[in-house]
Design a protein around this nucleic acid. Sequence first.
DNA 1: TTGGATATATCGATCTTAGATATATCGAAG
DNA 2: CTTCGATATATCTAAGATCGATATATCCAA
Lengths: 123, 123
Amino acid sequence: MPLSDLKADQTELVVLSVLAEGPSYGYGIGKRVAALSEGDWKIGPGQLYPLLSKLEKAKLVKTSWEEVKRDGADPDAAGRRRKWYQLTAKGRQRLAQRVDAHRRAAAVLDRFLSIAGAEGATP
Amino acid sequence: MPLSDLKADQTELVVLSVLAEGPSYGYGIGKRVAALSEGDWKIGPGQLYPLLSKLEKAKLVKTSWEEVKRDGADPDAAGRRRKWYQLTAKGRQRLAQRVDAHRRAAAVLDRFLSIAGAEGATP
DNA sequence: TTGGATATATCGATCTTAGATATATCGAAG
DNA sequence: CTTCGATATATCTAAGATCGATATATCCAA
């Protein structure tokens, strides 16, 4: 199952859910998504970082750079510095909204599926 | 809830489901989707007809023009002629595939949602 | 010392989306 | 008898979404 089955809205829902477990950083979020989905879903950098930027701009997450001991090196240099993301109250609100919207949509979709002769809509 | 929440894959799933009830025609499919979703979902001509063409090309549906009594009029003229769509065996197979993929994805997503503190994953 | 994992970030060709547009018919209300 | 809304099909296209490819830099283990 490729990520193409995981649309943008769902990617946001998934990332917000991971962040609801506690603060995390980009790469870690990607690993968590892969772990929780048992490798089914992968979020590449090309989807993850633009999304995190969007969430940050929308004030759904609060960010902070991890302090890294770096003897005399340029503190602005890229590399292994972690940028931490933490859900804001607004972010938690948005998550609740998205979860609700998902449940409603899933309920409607189940109507179509059960009519189509697919039993086991809600096992 | 706008249709923006209904992505292409899901639109196909929904249309295939409606067709599983029995043969139908474009406009009727649109009405059926609106009815079953209680107005939540709308498929405009801009999404519906390209999708139906795609399904036809992929041999997932078989099409036929409705015979319309039309005294001496051009039988090729557009207007209120209905083009009927009927699921093929391949189409039913594809529907089963899509339903299965949806259920798997929904199950994975529920893992994220329950971890996020949203109870009632499978009510 | 070198390769792989960690870590962040942008770019862009390609696909998707959904409203706007076009055409034509039928039935009902005025 | 005529006008208007619903029925019915279909295409086009601007705007947006997608995700692999690319870039850079660090840390650690073999």
